[in-house]
Write a protein that binds this DNA or RNA. Structure first.
Lengths: 221, 221
DNA sequence: GACTAGATGTCGGGG
DNA sequence: CCCCGACGTCTAGTC
């Protein structure tokens, strides 16, 4: 990784055109060749950047970065305060926990939480349709089919997504009629309203409680 | 801005839980207090980060960053290769051109491009509804109302967005019936299919050609 | 503060 | 390679 603190101006020409007048900034060049131009603020997003793969041509006071898509980043350097290079090596990488996948896993194991009185049983996770997989497909105690869309945060586009799935599923005479459940840790009022209009049930799931149920069960063994 | 190259391990506990085992990384602390942990690859996105505002507590070999939402980033430092601090000052900022706003501007000036035979005239840009503004509202030669949704890239959620607007607009007896046009530089097949099912017209707009029309008109003055 | 829509979104998975 | 959905999305704008 190479770090350069420099007074520089930058132009990007690609998916859009953007310009940065001359100022002090950090130029970061990573081992994979990607380049980022950072100001001293504004979260982690750089002002300008070019992701790998790209070609890097360095002149005395000018960098030209181009990529196969024909985008260009040009840095004109007026003054250099720092220019250091270090090899960091491969990163062992990040392990994550607690995202939507885990919520889906927990609900797949405990579909009853979604509708305590309906006797829901899981048919399949990621049930395929021609427009993508439904998170959970279940049947209730009466044999009725239930499609479940799971989000960490329930917003209006999630309701649209479930609506599209229901539309497809209901064309299958083996499944129809299919009803929908929209499940999330928190569901926004607008999303609830839209769901109600469309006859879709909303369930707000308590993630910590669900993990509690899970660990209770483990404790039984 | 402070730049630290260090062998370190990192944990984040907040919207999710994430861990990074010990390795050489770049720690970047900006003037606004935000912290980013970068590996030597993987585009501009850091492995872990905490955006401002947050509180930063530094020990001999441990950083603890917390924010008002109760999220925590902890960095345990094993070895420091570099630790430099420079004041960069306020950045003059980025100027952009060519995004969706410009496309909307061009189409507002030339709605005829969207349906050459219909005699479209612009009624209003950003026509308000109770769920947000429609990009363009037009009338055709027969007085029929047309709602236009503009995207740089036409995808399925854009069709959903326009569908929601049409639903609202068609409740207004002064406007109904309202038909929809979905305009973008490129429209994905799935989005076209969904639009067709819903009776929404798709128009792929040539941005450069449209700019050409614009400059031709300017030339007439 | 809530809600909406845009982003050079980025990133990862599946066909 | 494109297509698609998730993201600690982030961010700017409106109400």
């Amino acid at each position: 990784m190479r770090l350069v603190l420099a007074r520089c101006s930058v132009t990007y020409d690609g998916r859009l055109t953007a310009e940065l007048p001359s100022a002090l900034r950090l130029l970061m060049v990573k081992a994979d060749g990607c380049v980022a131009v950072h100001a001293d603020g504004g979260a982690y997003k750089p002002l300008n950047w070019m992701n790998a793969p790209n070609t890097f041509v360095e002149d005395e006071d000018r960098w030209v970065v181009t990529n196969p898509k024909g985008e260009t980043l040009e840095v004109v350097i007026d003054e250099v305060l720092l220019d250091v290079t270090h090899e960091l090596g491969e990163d062992p990488g990040l392990s994550k926990d607690g995202v939507e996948a885990h919520l889906q896993q927990l609900l797949a194991a405990h579909p009853d939480v979604l509708a305590p009185d309906d006797g829901l049983r899981l048919v399949r996770r990621e049930y395929p349709t021609d427009i993508g997989p439904v998170d959970l497909l279940c049947r209730d105690g009466d044999g009725g089919v239930v499609a479940v869309e799971i989000k960490r945060r329930g917003e209006i586009d999630g309701v649209d997504q479930l609506t599209r799935y229901l539309e497809r599923l209901n064309r299958d005479p083996m499944l129809a009629p299919v009803r929908g459940i929209f499940a999330a840790q928190r569901i926004k009022p607008q999303a609830k309203t839209l769901a109600r209009e469309r006859g879709i049930a909303c369930v707000e799931v308590d993630y910590d409680e669900l993990r509690g149920v899970e660990s209770d069960e483990l404790r039984l063994f």
